[in-house]
């Protein structure tokens, strides 16, 4: 039986004096789940709460049966923050080797991760000399080390060309097929179709939680963007 990976209940987070999430309830299971919503709606805040690096005001978040952020989870979650979070003055492999040592995984994992994000030709380049898209792939490679059970990716495809974006989504699905849960945020609605499941978010609330097809059907729309707008109009402001 497929058990849920992430369970959020009554999550309230106040940032900078303003409530960002209020009483959020959410269950995320295996497969690729997309978290979509406009800029500033609270996507990163929710992902940070799931990883356990966000100070929360009330509510509970449990991941793989443990409280979010607890020690047993720390080598089971791969996390890509919105900014690249790698050392610009180290090479691609030096970065990966460092994080691999922290996680206690072998050097073969480094090679695997570099190949997975298609950076083999740049493996000895200094991270600071890479393009924005290449840099975000280094960050993604770090999250892939050690085959985590949950991958939390905050806008990993920003600034990437269509071919690379397609390749990465294929990678996310391969990872999910191998049994992991992949949670990807994006503010680009056209990425929605690539997810098994979608969470549409607006002003800190989840306004839809279903498969892309079901969300479109319920809203009587042909694409997710139209469905999102229809949902926004229908929901109480």
């Amino acid at each position: 039986m497929m058990k849920s990976t992430v369970e959020v209940s009554g999550l309230t987070v106040v940032r900078g004096g303003r409530p960002v999430l209020t009483g959020l309830d959410l269950v995320i299971g295996k497969g690729v789940t997309g978290l979509l919503g406009p800029s500033g709606c609270g996507k990163s805040t929710l992902l940070r709460s799931i990883v356990g690096v966000q100070r929360v005001d009330s509510g509970t978040v449990s991941v793989l049966g443990e409280p979010a952020g607890s020690a047993p989870l720390r080598d089971r979650i791969g996390y890509v923050t919105q900014d690249s979070s790698v050392y610009l003055d180290l090479s691609v492999t030096e970065n990966l080797r460092f994080f691999a040592r922290v996680l206690g995984v072998g050097a073969d994992e480094v090679d695997r991760a570099v190949e997975a994000v298609d950076l083999t030709s740049h493996r000895d380049a200094l991270a600071g000399n890479l393009s924005g898209g290449q840099l975000s792939r280094v960050s993604l490679a770090v999250a892939l080390l050690g085959k985590p059970d949950l991958l939390v990716l905050d806008e990993p495809t920003v600034g990437l060309d269509p071919v690379l974006r397609r390749d990465l989504w294929e990678l996310f699905h391969r990872i999910a097929d191998a049994g992991a849960t992949v949670l990807v945020s994006s503010h680009v609605m056209d990425e929605a179709e690539r997810c098994d499941r979608l969470l549409l978010m607006r002003e800190g609330r989840i306004i839809a939680d279903d498969t892309p097809a079901a969300i479109k059907a319920a809203a009587g729309a042909d694409d997710i963007e139209t469905a999102f707008l229809a949902l926004v109009e229908a929901s109480p402001a």
Partner: peptide, 11 residues
């Protein structure tokens, strides 16, 4: 740079 946040989410 966010590397500290990433490290503290690791073991």
């Amino acid at each position: 740079s966010g590397t500290l946040e990433r490290l503290l989410a690791m073991p």
